Simulated assay, not measured.
Amino acid sequence: MIKVAVAGAAGRMGATTCEAVEAADDMELVGRADPSLGTSVADVLEGTDVLVDFTLPDQVVANVQLAAASGVHCVVGATGWDEDELRAAVADRPGNVFFAPNFAIGAVLMMRFAAEASKVMSGAEIIEYHHPKKVDAPSGTAKRTAALMEGEVPIHSVRLPGIVADQDVIFGEEGQSLIIRHVTSDLASFMPGVLLAIRNVAELPESPVIGLEKLLWPS
């Protein structure tokens, strides 16, 4: 059994992750860390194999540094933190770190298709849509998509009630256009990717590893 603790357990993604872990036959939920629960990350590390972090951008690096230094592997779903800072914080730590800006399989396919289309289309722009409580803009998914594409890709952010997490990648060419769209209607869509990361983080060939595509299509 993989013993899992969740940081940000009282949040929307954290609570959904707790439910998914509890329903998995090969996992055991051993800790819920969240200020509203009166429990810190340090409180849940003992006896934990993997810490899943869905906290806030200003908390991620410290959480992951503490866990990885304790030999606990980390799966990070929170976005908006500094990648260079995290890499420095977990260098040569015994715990592995895996991060994905989006754990939905469809979103990873969208990014892969967009990267391919950008090689042959004249230009592209990204529009990402999220709920008003999302603290970072552009989203981690949009930034990751743009980074995988050829050329400069402008990103536009929309924050409105009623939206979970959607993204359009719009390509333009003379006489035609192409739109690659991913729509999320339920947080459950992220859970297969989260569970995949939990099951694989201990065996990563290097750390940190960024992007669910590294697990779906290992080279």
Results as ranks from 00 to 15, higher is better:
residue 106 G to M: 10
residue 129 Y to C: 05
residue 94 P to H: 07
residue 112 R to F: 08
residue 97 V to Y: 07
residue 84 D to F: 12
residue 116 E to P: 01
residue 122 S to A: 08
residue 124 A to K: 00
residue 116 E to D: 09
residue 98 F to D: 02
residue 107 A to G: 09
residue 131 H to Y: 12
residue 117 A to L: 12
residue 90 V to T: 01
residue 90 V to W: 00
residue 87 R to S: 06
residue 85 E to A: 02
residue 109 L to H: 04
residue 102 N to L: 15
residue 132 P to G: 07
residue 126 I to Y: 08
residue 112 R to E: 11
residue 100 A to M: 09
residue 89 A to S: 09
residue 110 M to P: 01
residue 118 S to H: 05
residue 93 R to D: 12
residue 128 E to Q: 13
residue 114 A to R: 02
residue 117 A to R: 07
residue 130 H to S: 07
residue 121 M to R: 10
residue 121 M to F: 13
residue 100 A to D: 12
residue 87 R to P: 12
residue 127 I to D: 10
residue 114 A to K: 02
residue 122 S to V: 04
residue 104 A to R: 01
residue 103 F to E: 01
residue 113 F to S: 14
residue 126 I to L: 11
residue 108 V to I: 14
residue 131 H to C: 12
residue 130 H to A: 12
residue 96 N to Y: 03
residue 119 K to C: 09
residue 94 P to S: 10
residue 122 S to L: 07
residue 127 I to P: 00
residue 102 N to W: 10
residue 112 R to I: 14
residue 129 Y to T: 01
residue 84 D to M: 13
residue 90 V to C: 02
residue 108 V to G: 03
residue 89 A to M: 03
residue 108 V to M: 06
residue 101 P to N: 14
residue 90 V to M: 02
residue 83 E to I: 12
residue 124 A to L: 02
residue 109 L to K: 01
residue 87 R to K: 13
residue 122 S to K: 11
residue 124 A to R: 00
residue 114 A to D: 06
residue 97 V to C: 09
residue 118 S to L: 09
residue 119 K to P: 04
residue 84 D to N: 13
residue 117 A to S: 09
residue 107 A to N: 08
residue 119 K to I: 05
residue 85 E to H: 01
residue 103 F to T: 07
residue 119 K to T: 15
residue 84 D to G: 14
residue 125 E to T: 08
residue 94 P to Y: 12
residue 85 E to L: 00
residue 87 R to E: 15
residue 113 F to Q: 15
residue 90 V to D: 00
residue 99 F to P: 00
residue 127 I to M: 14
residue 118 S to M: 05
residue 83 E to M: 09
residue 122 S to W: 06
residue 108 V to L: 08
residue 116 E to N: 08
residue 92 D to P: 01
residue 113 F to N: 11
residue 94 P to I: 04
residue 102 N to T: 05
residue 84 D to T: 13
residue 110 M to C: 11
residue 87 R to L: 11
residue 92 D to F: 03
residue 129 Y to V: 04
residue 113 F to M: 13
residue 114 A to E: 05
residue 102 N to Q: 14
residue 87 R to F: 10
residue 89 A to Y: 00
residue 123 G to D: 08
residue 111 M to N: 05
residue 115 A to K: 08
residue 130 H to Y: 06
residue 89 A to N: 03
residue 88 A to G: 14
residue 109 L to C: 03
residue 99 F to A: 00
residue 95 G to P: 10
residue 127 I to Q: 10
residue 115 A to I: 15
residue 95 G to D: 11
residue 83 E to F: 06
residue 107 A to S: 15
residue 116 E to I: 05
residue 124 A to N: 01
residue 94 P to C: 09
residue 103 F to L: 09
residue 103 F to V: 08
